[in-house]
């Protein structure tokens, strides 16, 4: 564990609390992509299957359980409690275009051709692109509530911080995880456009609006 990874994980935690806060205070999940949230459940469940057979640390296990539980809870809130506030007609990204290629990639790129390792690779690739339905929705509506942008920023910062973590680990431990690093760089790259608008508008006190 190093500073960058800890900060990244905390940012990930923060993003989930911001999202829950947004849903609870506005009593609405408007502007949140159900598809992206469902993909996160798939990501966490497939990656954290190792809870059953690998123990890393208490921190690691607690975080894994938290991510699975909170992502399922968010899905529940969107699907049942605040269902009328979710508009599927603007959440139209075709997730099969993500699931299919990620699955094929995981068959090709994995550290061992075993059930759990293939699922692990799949979850890494899927996480990299899971935000696309959300960004697509943002693009369609052209604007977002400020709190939603804070959620997305925290989520983007989380993976961005994993990059210095990997550089640090390379120099201190000689450790390189090419699958996670490649996917992580792609994942962070997807946020660049968003980050640009976030830093130049939202953090200057303006509303998040995309140019028409």
């Amino acid at each position: 564990m190093n500073f960058f990874r800890l900060l990244g994980d905390l940012s990930h935690l923060a993003s989930i609390f911001i999202l829950l806060h947004k849903i609870q205070t506005t009593r609405s999940c408007r502007g949140i992509s159900f598809k992206t949230q469902a993909l996160y459940v798939a990501v966490f469940v497939t990656r954290y299957l190792d809870l059953f057979f690998r123990y890393v640390s208490l921190y690691n296990s607690v975080m894994k359980l938290f991510f699975i539980a909170s992502s399922c809870y968010i899905l529940y809130l969107m699907k049942y409690k605040y269902r009328p506030t979710h508009d599927p007609s603007i959440d139209t990204f075709r997730i099969e275009y993500l699931l299919g290629p990620c699955f094929v990639l995981s068959l090709i790129f994995n550290y061992k051709f075993s059930f759990s390792e293939i699922l692990w690779s799949f979850s890494i690739f899927l996480e990299a692109v899971a935000i696309l339905p959300q960004l697509f929705m943002l693009q369609r509506t052209g604007e977002a509530e400020t709190i939603t942008t804070h959620y997305l920023a925290a989520l983007g910062v989380y993976r961005a911080l994993y990059i210095p973590n990997w550089i640090y680990r390379y120099f201190t431990e000689g450790l390189v995880d090419p699958i996670a690093v490649t996917a992580g760089i792609v994942q962070t790259g997807l946020y660049l456009d968003f980050f640009y608008v976030y830093f130049t508008k939202v953090l200057q006190g303006q509303k998040f609006e995309l140019p028409a």
């Binding site: 990874r5 994980d9 990930h12 190792d50 690998r54 890393v56 640390s57 690691n60 975080m63 894994k64 991510f67 550290y111 061992k112 390792e117 692990w120 994993y162 973590n165 000689g174 450790l175 390189v176 995880d177 090419p178 699958i179 996670a180």
Partner: peptide, 10 residues
């Protein structure tokens, strides 16, 4: 030395 499938990250 390089053990990529450690999976100790979240």
């Amino acid at each position: 030395q390089v053990s990529p499938s450690n999976h100790d990250e979240l």
